[in-house]
Design a protein around this nucleic acid. Structure first.
Lengths: 292, 292
DNA sequence: TCTCCTGTGTAATGTATTTTTCAGATTCTG
DNA sequence: CAGAATCTGAAAAATACATTACACAGGAGA
């Protein structure tokens, strides 16, 4: 069907004139329960419209479809289209609001957190709490910054936290040394990167625990991941949002801190002391005292 | 309205843990083309997910359906439901994800965006639109990741975007060359870093335009900055949140894209072509085609 | 290395669904 | 009010489909 632009619903209205009375009954039922009823069987459709199956069939033939399967395929395509809408939307139209976009960003965070599995968070906290395990973090093109955010928190709170090299050659060298005790944390969202998926597979083969942060469509890496976080990343903007992933990372960081604060606190103080020694100068800004 | 509470999509997420890797592939395909693909035949579903029909069948059984027809009926019901309510997702129940830390994170984004000055955004967009100006970006310890996020977007959309080196010695060398045409973008939040403030002062002295991203208490750098964005960063967690800053960055990126899309579009396509040449391999994953 | 076990696809089976045929019902027309 | 034209649905025929049975593959553990 070439004209995906023309909604099938519109075709019905147009063709209504040349319909017999029974066929009109079918048409009305289709419009009433559009498009779901078209996805049932001919028989079910016919029963609900209180006509016979052949009548329904003649009806959809008049609409210009080759047969019932053809008609259903068109309906499914329409559903697919409507899902894609935010992506393929003609760029020009709504000049209106930055505040509208603000709501979308809020929605990204809300939707992500709403679907966040707290049990999963618990499990991952458990993993991160074990300092005998090494943590290796890798992000993709877009997600490397969120990966960095997680890296930041973990590095402050515990030892043995590393980032996997972006360069594939270097990375291969590192992957060799991974084992069952190692945790590999990967970030991969749509426009999924082959090298990240491959890294996941290798890590899986080596028996690593794999924590994956991905989007609602899920990277292939999820096939081998032991723990998968899903975030919403889609907005009306052509650029995907990292807010959802960032929110998850921060929620994890906060929980980990609660769990480990008795260990983390002295660690941070020690770091602070060393830092001062390194800089060999005293802290000047009094307003910086408030944090921690 | 009976089972409208449990979206099938949510059930998938929940059951994801107990899925085998092939089943996960089926799950991902369902989420990617949700719900249309579920309305095709098992065989068609299986083919597109690149698994066998029985695998798809086992998958939907694990989701708790009695059989494939049962599953499809559920999908149709969902479509019917969504027709009745304008919003695609039943505006949800308990959105706080079990903890009210989620609400705090939401509040960070909300409060930040509420105070975002759209006039200021306009001005900065104007700055970034001018490709004769060089953009130099620098983040602090925590904020270097958001800085990276801005860097990512600007770099995709225009030329002459650089990051200032973290290392102070290197950085000094670069600062020497800055002039009136240059834009310096700084990120500095509490635990303000002296080196960032100093960088701001030097840049100001050299006549640069300075765009500062800071928190509600405002870095000292704001004294010399020409444009200042303020984000909320505080939560009940001891670790500050980057969600506010990230939201501002993404809002700016989106606006810049709208303004420049006629330039950006061909640029991205060109980049894509070069990338393919570099990799010298054809795209394998069809699901990655959809974005952009 | 062998054995078990889980996961997976092929192929056969039985069931549901579409499509066709055709006869009865209805409406229209002279 | 005939008689033709059109419409409609029951039932058979043809097709597509979901489901099951089974065997092979590959990894885990002894």
């Amino acid at each position: 069907m070439a004209n995906s632009q023309t909604l099938i619903a519109d075709r019905i209205t147009a063709a209504m004139g040349s319909m017999t009375s029974s066929e009109k009954r079918a048409a009305r039922m289709l419009l009433a329960r559009y498009p779901a009823i078209g996805l049932e069987s001919v028989t079910a459709f016919a029963e609900q419209a209180e006509v016979s199956a052949p009548t329904v069939l003649r009806f959809i033939t008049k609409l210009g479809f080759g047969g019932y399967p053809d008609f259903r395929r068109a309906l499914r395509d329409e559903i697919d289209e409507s899902r894609k809408f935010p992506l393929t939307r003609p760029r020009s139209e709504n000049l209106d609001a930055g505040s509208d976009f603000g709501n979308e960003l809020l929605e990204v965070v809300r939707a992500t957190l709403a679907e966040l599995d707290t049990g999963l968070v618990e499990q991952v906290i458990e993993l991160f709490s074990d300092e005998r395990r090494t943590v290796n973090i890798l992000g993709g093109d877009l997600t490397t910054t969120v990966a960095g955010h997680l890296l930041y928190h973990l590095r402050k709170m515990r030892r043995s936290v590393f980032e996997l090299p972006e360069m594939v050659q270097e990375r291969s060298d590192r992957l060799i040394d991974l084992g069952k005790k190692d945790i590999v944390v990967l970030f991969d969202v749509r426009r999924y990167q082959e090298d990240v998926v491959t890294t996941a597979r290798i890590a899986a083969q080596r028996g690593c625990t794999i924590v994956l942060f991905t989007d609602q469509w899920m990277s292939e890496a999820s096939e081998v991941a032991t723990h998968v976080f899903r975030a919403k990343i889609e907005t009306s903007s052509p650029w995907d949002s990292l807010l959802g992933l960032t929110a998850i990372v921060e929620a994890i960081a906060r929980e980990l801190d609660r769990r480990l604060w008795s260990v983390v606190r002295p660690r941070l103080e020690a770091v602070e002391r060393y830092k001062l020694n390194l800089l060999a100068q005293k802290e000047a800004d009094p307003s910086s005292e408030r944090h921690r």
